[in-house]
Design a protein around this nucleic acid. Structure first.
Lengths: 187, 187
DNA sequence: GCCAAAAGCTAATATGATTAGCCAATCGAT
DNA sequence: ATCGATTGGCTAATCATATTAGCTTTTGGC
């Protein structure tokens, strides 16, 4: 019986991929073990349990989202940066609904939690978008929360298929970006 | 053994209340049965299972949210209506996080699903807010989605404790309402 | 009062997470 | 090269929870 050669990173990556495929709620330890060619209890040598796995998937997702948004914003400013960031974020969530779902309702346990760092990086990327606008010092936090609200709200509603009615979603998304741009400019 | 006198509505109401108390993820059939003074299998005489229960809780939550937002909007227009609706929605989600969580990612099975009707009523209430603004016919759907995105995004992020950093949340919320109001006015 | 339906119950089954404890593969130091 | 400790995998067992089967008692309409 040769070893499978797993480590926490591999397990988490496979878990995230599987969550994207079948949905976070249908990600079971058994299914993940099967995917990795290993028996269920073996997973516990690499992650502490389902909670821990979920937390690690969340950290991975936040980190990847931060990368995606961060690089989308590179070299752009103002409306361009806003649109690029929004698109990057939405694309990430739609491409990886399972791992993004893992981030919802999970809090970092402490400042040394990798999730805290990833979360911070994502916020930095959002903050970079705001630098292209003339925002009063006192309003930056509010604007940051607004951006997060918009991005998170739109992505999760769409991922949950919560927009059933007629109008085209891409159009709505573009409209939303315009809306935010106007608001930030006029703020 | 006298009967407990349950019916689907009672079971669903108790389930929603319990979800609010302990969190939707910790709502188990056993816990609910205990709360109702009955053994677990008895619940299956009133709801078809956990999925069905969740779906019914979601319908209840949407219906209540529609009532709350609908009555908040009554007799108000424009910015007042927007602010009242936003506050009512947020208050509802914060007061009933468990049942609201039940609505996420659940789709009505058909047009006769009670959830569909409740969902429609909530949208009507949001639509009423928009009537106080001068919005081009073609933009109404987009604006509606924007409102839903904002309300849902803010409420869920806050409910999940996703706003950890410094600035005051109520202030951010007020700022967000201003932001939306300006945007809708200038649209 | 009688009877069908409804509402409870106990017991059984299934699935999934987790733990205990065993054993083989690997790795670092000699 | 090899010894010994560590590690990563396994099987078997336990526990929690959902769900189903099938029995029994209440209850509401006649």
């Amino acid at each position: 019986m040769p070893r499978a050669g797993l480590d926490p990173a591999t397990v988490v990556a496979a878990g995230a991929a599987l969550a994207d495929e079948v949905g976070l709620d249908r990600l079971t330890m058994g299914l993940l073990a099967g995917r990795l060619g290993v028996r269920t209890p073996s997973l516990y040598k690499h992650v502490a349990g389902q909670d821990d796995l979920n937390r690690r998937i969340a950290a991975l997702a936040l980190s990847e989202a931060a990368d995606a948004v961060g690089s989308a914003v590179q070299g752009r400013a103002g409306r361009d940066a806003l649109a690029a960031a929004a698109r990057a974020f939405r694309a990430f969530v739609l491409a990886h609904p399972g791992r993004y779902a893992a981030t919802i309702g999970v809090e970092p346990t402490g400042p040394d939690d990798p999730m805290a760092a990833a979360s911070r990086r994502l916020l930095e990327a959002f903050l970079a978008v705001l630098r292209g606008y003339r925002i009063a010092e006192a309003d930056v936090d509010h604007a940051l929360r607004m951006l997060r609200t918009l991005f998170h709200g739109f992505a999760t509603l769409q991922a949950a298929d919560g927009f059933q009615w007629s109008a085209d979603i891409d159009e709505s998304f573009a409209w939303l970006i315009d809306f935010a741009d106007r608001g930030l400019r006029a703020g």
